[in-house]
């Protein structure tokens, strides 16, 4: 608007600061994306379909130092993870042997399956993308856009019909 006369030195500094900020902005977007990326990791202790490995009877599996899950043969459990890199510790209940592995999860999926027998046997890859055949859908809500009652948890007030013309 006004014809500010800006010292060229200040102007270049500003250019740097501003472009730096733009970079920081995108960096932050990426960082939040990477750090916040959530996964469901299924931890599976079953025989492989091709018979390559056999389930182990009794393991304790702990991801990122969280409380260990106890899995016996044929068990499957799930854990929620955030971020791509994780440390998995598997402890065999039988002999107390500990195996520590670091895993790196791909960005393009939300659900993966970690096969404990494969991990213990050292077969790569022991983490695979898990595809649900039939996604279960919460029933009872279909076609959108009605002004009807909405979130069950919200303050009741929000549920009275708004005056949308």
């Amino acid at each position: 608007m006004s014809t500010e006369i800006i010292d060229p030195k200040v102007a270049t500094r500003r250019l740097f600061v501003r472009s730096g900020l733009v970079a920081v902005y995108f960096l932050l977007l990426v960082v939040t994306f990477l750090l916040g990326k959530g996964y469901t990791l299924l931890i599976d202790n079953k025989d492989a379909a091709d018979g390559s490995v056999v389930a182990i009877d009794g393991v304790l599996v702990s991801v990122d130092g969280a409380e260990a899950l106890e899995l016996y043969s044929g068990d499957r459990d799930a854990t929620q993870l955030k971020g791509q890199r994780h440390r998995v510790i598997v402890e065999l209940i039988s002999d107390g042997k500990k195996i520590e592995k670091s895993i790196h999860l791909p960005l393009d999926t939300d659900m993966l399956l970690l096969s404990v027998p494969k991990l213990v046997a050292g077969i790569e890859p022991f983490v695979e993308v898990f595809v649900l055949r039939d996604q279960p859908r919460p029933a009872g809500e279909e076609v959108g856009n009605t002004n009807a009652f909405t979130s069950p948890d919200s303050e009741a007030l929000e549920t009275v019909e708004p005056p949308v013309p």
Partner: peptide, 19 residues
């Protein structure tokens, strides 16, 4: 979008805010 990309936690909120 945060839910779409499955970005959770405080990072998810920050992501939503940054958009």
């Amino acid at each position: 979008l945060a839910i779409n990309f499955n970005i959770g936690g405080v990072e998810g909120l920050a992501f939503a805010a940054l958009l």
